[in-house]
Write a protein that binds this DNA or RNA. Structure first.
Lengths: 246, 246
DNA sequence: ACGAAGCCATTGTGATCACAATGAGCGCGC
DNA sequence: GCGCGCTCATTGTGATCACAATGGCTTCGT
């Protein structure tokens, strides 16, 4: 008997064990899909690919209801995204996608330039031809989305292109830092492309791929750096110069 | 009237509202001490200053009991530390301080060298004489702990010295990246000093302070970089070369 | 005596409830 | 008619319970 006299809940099963969580026994091999992890991944992609505009607020119960789970796993997923600076909790206890400022944007550009060329350089030492081919296909997807004006598709393919390279570096710690950075400018990036469109975009992906193919380390690092500088310069000009950040 | 017939819990107050949390109305100015935040800060300091050795495991209920709260706020604090890579959850669902590997250590050194000199450089543009004096006092505390062989005290003062500088940069995003990095090598650093002691240590704090005072940007960046290279080299040699990482 | 199988304590996960605080909506008073 | 105050819905926070899974320990069988 527990310390609390419980009055035997007459109707309604108290716990439902939640549809999706413990059902799959062992489908493929590594399915550790705790509910909060799948929630995390869903929110993360929405943020990363521009699904949520900067400044927009989210509520635990709101997401919980829209996903059909209790607020509990949402809490943990949101807490994690806050720790990764993808979300921000203000003093009101309101959770929102943090608005961008010019200073923060410059910090992000610096960090990208400091870390991503190194990641690419390390990837070059371990990458195989098969991977390069796969990365080239990501680049073609980028081009396709660009001419179609498909902004979410462009952002997704662009992310895949970069991280397909970076993941080859086998540098989990640096990769985590860079992922956190991308999470922070994702919503802002979407905002810029939403205003300007993708038609005027150009990138340095081809130069990076070709340098990767001929194992030209300095060329690769320069191409990545140029891609960052040019892309981020474009985004910064598009948004920061013309209007407020919210 | 809520939607659920509530049976008026007869005895024993079901919730205690936890001692410390909502009591302080507005002591100083910014007291947003949710329980999980104070738990987070406590754990964070323990990790940062070498209170927990690499590889040691922690349990939610264990910490909860030792802190006199329910496992709930612990869960959020731990989740946050996991997101910051200070803790790691392995597939067993066991939470532990991640062990160091040589590769990860090299990533950390690279990231520190890439980010911290920049932070110091930015700090130089905004720092005042009063702050420099305060930072110099941190350095004296470092020296004191060093001759006393007080390893936790050394680590704490060393942290304070570096971050007192970095905080002046007004670069929250970069600062957060660097904090995450320090959280990752804190336990490992402690391990090295525990083996070797602090008596043979030397740092480049004086050079950094003097460069800061005469606004010598390149000298400051070089001093910070030298401090990192030398200190981390020492730590790496002390541990990685002589024994396994656990 | 050694091995394996089963039992049980412990751990993280999720749901539900209770509560304080923020904030918006409404009504009353001047 | 306009402004101020109150009320209540909504939000995040914390506690407690229920549950599945991992792991260690005991115990039975050979």
């Amino acid at each position: 008997m527990s310390k609390r006299a419980r009055s035997a809940p007459p109707t309604s099963p108290p716990h439902k064990r939640t549809a999706v969580s413990r059902t799959a026994p062992k489908l493929s091999e590594a399915s550790t899909v705790t509910t909060h992890e799948s929630v995390y991944r869903g929110l993360r992609e929405r943020i990363l690919f521009g699904g949520v505009p900067p400044g927009s607020a989210i509520t635990l119960r709101g997401i919980a209801e829209s996903m059909g789970v209790s607020p509990m796993p949402i809490r943990e997923a949101v807490r994690r995204l806050i720790a990764e600076r993808a979300l921000k909790m203000q003093d009101n206890r309101r959770v929102l996608v943090p608005p961008m400022t010019e200073g923060r944007f410059r910090e992000i550009v610096f960090a990208r330039l400091a870390l991503e060329p190194e990641l690419a350089s390390r990837a070059m030492d371990r990458i195989g031809e098969a991977e390069i081919t796969r990365i080239a296909s990501h680049d073609r997807a980028v081009d396709r989305a660009m001419v179609d004006g498909d902004v979410p598709g462009y952002m997704q393919s662009n992310f895949r292109f970069h991280f397909a390279i970076y993941e080859q570096a086998g540098a989990e710690t640096l990769l985590a830092l860079v992922e956190s950075i991308w999470l922070q400018f994702g919503p802002f990036m979407r905002m810029a492309y939403g205003r300007i469109g993708t038609s005027t975009l150009e990138d340095h992906h081809q130069a990076a791929l070709s340098a990767l193919g001929r194992r030209d380390r300095e060329g690769l690092k320069a191409a990545i750096a140029a891609d960052i500088s040019q892309g981020m310069g474009f985004i910064g000009d598009a948004v920061l110069k013309h209007a407020e950040t919210a």
